[in-house]
Design a binder for these strands. Structure first.
Length: 610
DNA sequence: AACAGTTGCGCG
DNA sequence: AAAGCGCGCAACTGTT
């Protein structure tokens, strides 16, 4: 498709050598492998350069309203690190349709290249650096009036002020790496899955930057109300809120120890034992086992202490401003391919605070999560028809009960988690054999992954992300245990860490494939949302920035859940788009599989869960 | 005073 | 005390 003369890719990178840090250049790469000469990009002109090409011929020029041509003419942008490049573009109101993130793709391909296929390895270690985190922020203007977009906000958010990492960003490096990656994929690829994975991973990088730029609409007053209701009114910095003080006094009174320190686990443990509570740790799981009048207030104290330190007023001040919470996501930050986050704890927002996620006036939050994503992914990967059938309704766990695999929904859940995590003891270990009987194909897949891992092998997700090989220490312990002079301790250690690795690889294939499904879901949804007609300026969202104020946009992502911030009038269309994207994700990964991926979907002003 | 390591708990 | 995977973060402890 597309015009024969239109470049398929456009590689962006730093053009000059020493002293030329800001000069950028581009090289077009065509489908037949031909390359253009280097196209110089004037200083500060990247946004304009890209905007012009994202808008196809005959279309209105300028993308201040974010109207990206959905890829008909625009090339796929190839750059070293989306996290380093894209926030500045977004801040200038330029959206990108597709990209190829060399750093993320390198991370995927480097483990893959350990598989003996005879292809060239990607052995340029410089590409293995962690992402360069750049705050989106408002464009800052330097002395010369030019936007200094890459300046780090050292004071506002210290975590984002990490030193720029050593990923090469010159055009020459990018072209070389891009060639290596393409030839490696070409040599290894038979199914097209790997290309799909690289595209999905890169799309995820775009989504992550856009999520930070758009922010989560956050009701600071509601957050404050939740805190005040639980903790008492806000205390001066460093002081404890009244509710914690009162509970602390109650605990100390019940323990008969007026000096007991509840904030130090070792000291608390000593105080508990002095009061006759023979606990071995201070975790709430263990404390809840003991009958003592100090336990209840202590558990409440710990709950409040957690709320205060993790998401208290200090957090609110640091991470929420102008009605937006802007977490930093790290695509591919987890070995399995899941996203991680850095700063602000985006992936740990407690349910208690969900009511603080609140749409702007005239807008709604469309929240969707996938029911039992990981078991469904396992059913699809393994082609287990019985398991697919059990998941045909909206609740796979209920399907297990209906089929008499287990007696209760709770048992179904425990058994399924145990199967995917590799539990061998307790109730979970007891129930797993039933699944093995009912779903031999699915269980065979995870059991094989565990076995491969125990033997030091590499496993891979559905699209081909490989688990890291075992480290030197692991191999040495295994080797030592097989030596003639090995002690029982050596053997037990080797056995134990082999089993641990087996549980890791067992879960890797499922968790990693679920992450791929989620990427495909978001990539599809991102495209669909960008195609909505913008609403009038009068109905624009307050603090969403030029690209997101007038269209539905992704606002939050959490492994198997997305939240879209949308103008009220689009609520139903957005729900349909979210559903259609989930169906498309299933087809993209698994083709015409009998497994479906039902969503729990709701639109409301607030994102309350359950 | 700055650092790494541990504990405990929030999320999926 | 999580039996069983993957994370991030704050606070405390013990070192340098």
């Amino acid at each position: 498709m597309g015009e024969p003369r239109a470049p398929r890719w456009c590689v962006i990178g730093r053009a000059g050598g020493e002293g030329d840090e800001d000069r950028l250049g581009a090289v077009d790469v065509f489908a037949d492998g031909r390359r253009s000469a280097e196209i110089p990009i004037p200083e500060g002109g990247l946004a304009e350069f890209i905007a012009a090409r994202e808008t196809g011929p005959g279309e209105e020029r300028g993308t201040a309203d974010g109207r990206a041509a959905a890829g008909s003419h625009a090339p796929r942008w190839v750059w070293h690190d989306t996290a380093a490049r894209y926030p500045a573009l977004l801040a200038e109101g330029v959206r990108v349709g597709r990209c190829h993130d060399l750093r993320l793709c390198h991370q995927i391909l480097r483990f893959l290249s350990l598989v003996p296929h005879g292809a060239d390895r990607l052995d340029d270690e410089r590409w293995n650096a962690p992402p360069e985190i750049v705050e989106a922020g408002e464009p800052q203007h330097g002395d010369d009036g030019a936007p200094a977009l890459f300046e780090l906000e050292t004071e506002a958010s210290p975590r984002a002020a990490a030193e720029p990492r050593g990923v090469p960003d010159t055009l020459a490096d990018a072209l070389l790496e891009f060639d290596r990656q393409r030839s490696l994929v070409g040599a290894l690829e038979q199914s097209g899955r790997l290309a799909l994975l690289l595209a999905a991973e890169s799309a995820g990088a775009l989504v992550a930057a856009e999520l930070t730029a758009a922010g989560v609409p956050w009701d600071e007053l509601e957050h404050d109300r939740i805190l005040t209701e639980a903790l008492g009114s806000r205390p001066p910095t460093g002081a404890k809120p009244s509710e914690m003080l009162a509970l602390g006094e109650e605990v100390r009174r019940e323990l008969g120890d007026s000096g007991a320190n509840l904030d130090s686990p070792p000291k608390l443990l000593r105080a508990l034992r002095a009061a006759g509570i023979e606990a071995t740790s201070t975790s709430r799981w263990e404390l809840a086992e003991y009958e003592h009048p100090a336990i209840a207030p202590l558990l409440r104290y710990k709950k409040l202490a957690r709320l205060l330190s993790a998401n208290g007023w200090a957090w609110l001040e640091e991470w929420v401003s102008g009605g937006r919470y802007r977490p930093v996501y790290i695509p591919g930050g987890v070995v399995t391919g899941r996203w991680a986050s850095s700063g602000g704890g985006a992936l740990q927002i407690p349910r208690q605070l969900r009511p603080a996620l609140r749409a702007d006036p005239g807008w709604v939050l469309v929240s969707a999560d996938v029911s039992q994503l990981e078991p469904r992914v396992l059913a699809a990967m393994s082609g287990d028809r019985a398991m697919a059938a059990a998941g045909r309704g909206s609740d796979l766990y209920a399907g297990l009960v209906e089929r008499g695999v287990v007696e209760t929904r709770q048992e179904a859940k425990i058994a399924m988690l145990g199967a995917m995590y590799g539990s061998t003891t307790g109730e979970s270990g007891r129930l797993v054999p039933r699944l093995r009987r009912a779903f031999p194909a699915a269980m065979g897949l995870v059991d094989a992954a565990a076995s491969t891992g125990e033997q030091g092998g590499v496993v891979s997700t559905w699209l081909g992300r490989c688990s890291p090989p075992p480290g030197r220490e692991w191999r040495e312990i295994q080797a030592a245990a097989t030596l003639p002079g090995a002690s029982r301790r050596d053997e037990e250690l080797a056995r134990r860490i082999a089993r641990e690795r087996g549980r890791f690889t067992r879960n890797f294939v499922v968790q990693g494939t679920a992450a791929e499904w989620a990427l495909a879901w978001m990539a599809e949804l991102r495209g669909r949302l960008a195609a909505f007609e913008p609403v009038s300026a009068a109905s624009a969202a307050g603090a969403s920035g030029p690209l997101f104020a007038r269209r539905p946009h992704l606002a939050f992502f959490l492994h198997d859940e997305v939240i879209v911030h949308a103008p009220q009038r689009y609520a139903e269309e957005v729900e349909a788009a979210v559903r259609a994207s989930a169906e498309a994700a299933g087809r993209t990964l698994f083709g015409e599989s009998p497994v479906d991926f039902p969503l729990d979907l709701r639109s409301a002003e607030r994102a309350t869960k359950d």
